[in-house]
Design a protein around this nucleic acid. Structure first.
Length: 331
DNA sequence: AATGCCCACAACCGCAGATTG
DNA sequence: TCAATCTGCGGTTGTGGGCAT
């Protein structure tokens, strides 16, 4: 989308902000005729009231004739993710592998789409490894469910159908609901007796009968991409529950889509094929350190819990939900 | 219809390395 | 060798559009 030109001049009198079509034409005509030579000298020679840097950016990021515009293909997105896993935020280096795409364009794509896509897959967008910071994962049950589906499809296919049921997410949501008169009854909600911040992985481990965390780690550490990929083909898009977790806020389905991307998330084979190669964990971001900081900063877990989770439920937990849980099949 | 929120992305800013005289 | 200048890069910001309320 184009920005409406709003004239703006800095203290030196040079124009800043969006380029007008007239300015574009002057710049293109000049470079086609003379080349850009010295960028600093160019605006004076071309008759533009811009600084050289602004001219260079406009040319390299927008006006260059070899620039490929339009939507990124799935293959291009896949390539960017793989290159990012190897190179990190080296946008220029990444762009050199995608003819016609600029570093700026790729950087924007990453920040607006691909980063969220990885997070939705349960991967740390910095390290491209599975996220293990449970306290952060608490804010995204959908993400945990997606991870559980990956593992169960490989290790315990019979658990998959249960995980994909519409009621399952509702059940998990209610486990984390703010205690109320009804769901605090241990007969109705056994998890309320834990009297502590629930651990998402432990919870799912209990439900599934296997260790999700270690299985997930093994999956990424021990198996090649080609071994893993075929298992994603059988996934179906998860059912949309009536409500989605979103950092503790009560938001619409559309909001969740906005935050986490397509609702097909991990179930989408094209998405699964974008699983990156492994790289070492970034030293500056330790999930354990982050979790530790969160614990240190929140003296009272129950308070923190209420602030984070207290607002998303609009229904009381009912026996119906827990009957579904209690009656779940054994895997 | 009005308002507010979120998203996409062009453009800017500041820094670091390369080049030049 | 060194200072000045140029260029490239990555991070961040500002703004309009789209959508929900």
């Amino acid at each position: 989308m184009m920005r409406t030109p709003i004239a703006s001049n800095d203290e030196s009198g040079l124009k800043k902000g969006p380029w007008s079509p007239e300015e574009d034409k002057i710049l293109v005509d000049f470079i086609e005729k003379h080349g850009h030579g010295s960028w600093r000298a160019l605006p004076r020679l071309a008759g533009l009231n811009r600084c050289g840097k602004s001219c260079r950016l406009r040319w390299t990021n927008y006006l260059r004739p070899d620039i490929k515009r339009g939507k990124f293909s799935d293959e291009e997105e896949q390539l960017i993710i793989n290159l990012h896993s190897a190179l990190g935020n080296k946008w220029a280096a990444i762009a050199s592998h995608l003819p016609g795409r600029t570093d700026n364009e790729i950087k924007n794509l990453w920040n607006t789409h691909l980063k969220k896509k990885l997070m939705q897959m349960g991967l740390d967008p910095v390290t491209h490894r599975p996220r293990t910071d449970n306290l952060n994962l608490l804010s995204n049950l959908q993400q945990i469910l997606a991870a559980a589906k990956i593992v169960s499809s490989l290790t315990n296919p019979s658990a998959l159908s249960w995980l994909q049921s519409d009621a399952t997410l509702q059940l998990l949501q209610n486990m984390y609901a703010r205690p109320t008169a009804s769901n605090s009854d241990p007969l109705i909600n056994p998890f309320r007796t834990l009297n502590s911040l629930p651990d998402s992985y432990s919870l799912l481990n209990d439900l599934l009968g296997f260790n999700l965390h270690s299985n997930l780690q093994n999956l990424y550490d021990g198996n090649s991409l080609s071994q893993i990929q075929p298992n994603f083909q059988n996934f179906e898009a998860p059912q949309q529950p009536t409500q989605h977790l979103n950092g503790g806020r009560n938001t619409s389905f559309r909001e969740s889509q906005k935050q986490f991307g397509s609702t097909n998330n991990i179930a989408d084979p094209s998405l699964s094929s974008s699983l990156p190669n492994l790289v070492s964990a970034s030293p500056e971001r330790s999930p354990f350190k982050e979790a530790e900081n969160i614990m240190v900063n929140s003296k009272d877990c129950s308070t923190s819990f209420e602030l984070t989770w207290g607002d998303f439920m609009d229904e009381e937990t009912t026996e119906t939900y827990w009957k579904g849980f209690i009656d779940r099949p054994t895997f």
